[in-house]
């Protein structure tokens, strides 16, 4: 975590009187007051439970009998657990299905929103799926994709395509879930990117136009490079979100068929609330946390989130 140690050095390096001055001016105090409500929420609902979770991961707590300290046994079990590795593979597969498609479509939508239409209605429609509760979305798609009754198969049959299993098939289940979530979240991602597009100065485009660049050329040479900081933010949050996919699976496949969609979060849920092995479940959660941390640091390193080409 060299990123934040840099920052930590920042305030420390300053001279104390200046720091005190700021306090006296009341700005820092005011800032903390503003942060306080969400800080309380963060500590109560995130930090404390997370630390408790970490502690539980060193025990064999089953919720009903007193917990015993088992040291690193849960983590040893985890390394040898086929289901854990399988869950990781399945989750990565989902992320790979989900993120590239969603990001590409979202960029396309955002550019269209920005360059082609100013209609609020059209822009509104794009984010509409995101306004629906995920459970409702999953239920709607569960019915649409039902192998026997679903409208998707009826439509396919009308054009002569044979019946598809969709969520009920080992091969098709994960792509189906990825598509459902794409449908739901692409509009929102597009909105974030669209906001990023607003930060690109118009004169850059004017300069490009004067130099004779077309719409495509400007996209590759102006829009994308200048959009990078926002894209990094979008990618980091959507990748983390994808790794934590749960609701769609809980509604549609419950980890099946067989274990084709048993993603890591669903596996954690099963261990915790079907098998009641809280110690092991929290160890799995800690592992997921560490994995996400590494993925995020790598992403931010590679994409140089800190620098903008505008500067």
């Amino acid at each position: 975590m060299s990123t934040d140690t840099d920052v930590m050095r920042g305030p420390g390096a300053r001279t104390r009187p200046a720091w005190l001055n700021q306090w006296l001016k009341g700005e820092t105090l005011l800032a903390w007051l503003f942060i306080l409500p969400s800080l309380i929420g963060f500590i109560t609902f995130y930090a404390v439970p997370a630390i408790r979770g970490l502690l539980i991961s060193f025990t064999n707590w089953d919720m009903l009998r007193p917990a015993q300290n088992v040291g690193l046994a849960n983590y040893q079990q985890l390394l040898a657990d086929d289901q854990f590795w399988h869950a990781l593979r399945v989750t990565s597969y989902y992320v790979l299905l989900n993120i590239p498609l969603q990001t590409i479509v979202a960029i396309g939508l955002a550019v269209m929103m920005d360059r082609l239409t100013k209609s609020l209605v059209v822009r509104g429609i794009l984010v509409l799926p995101w306004l629906l509760p995920p459970v409702v979305v999953a239920l709607i798609w569960l019915w649409i994709l039902d192998p026997t009754l679903g409208i998707a198969n009826q439509a396919l049959r009308a054009i002569g395509v044979p019946r598809q299993d969709f969520l009920g098939g080992v091969v098709q289940a994960m792509p189906s879930i990825a598509l459902i979530n794409n449908w739901q979240y692409t509009g929102y991602t597009a909105l974030l990117i669209f906001a990023g597009l607003q930060t690109i100065p118009k004169d850059v485009y004017e300069a490009g136009a004067i130099d004779g660049a077309g719409e495509t050329r400007m996209f590759w040479s102006i829009t994308l490079p200048l959009l990078r900081p926002v894209l990094v933010f979008v990618l980091v949050t959507t990748v983390i979100g994808s790794f934590q996919i749960f609701d769609t699976i809980a509604i549609t496949t419950k980890g099946g068929p067989i274990d084709a969609t048993r993603v890591i979060n669903w596996y954690i849920y099963e261990v915790a609330f079907a098998r009641f092995q809280m110690g092991y479940a929290t160890a799995l959660a800690v592992a997921l946390f560490v994995i996400l941390l590494i993925v995020t640091i790598l992403q931010m390193r590679f994409l140089q989130s800190g620098q903008s080409d505008l500067a």
């Binding site: 934040d4 439970p49 479940a281 931010m300 800190g306």
Partner: peptide
């Protein structure tokens, strides 16, 4: 900017842990 992002990411990721506890 990077710090804020890092904190934000940490908070998101921490959610996994918190959900289980």
């Amino acid at each position: 900017h990077r710090f804020v992002l890092t904190v934000f990411v940490l908070m998101l990721a921490l959610g996994v842990l918190a959900a289980c506890s």
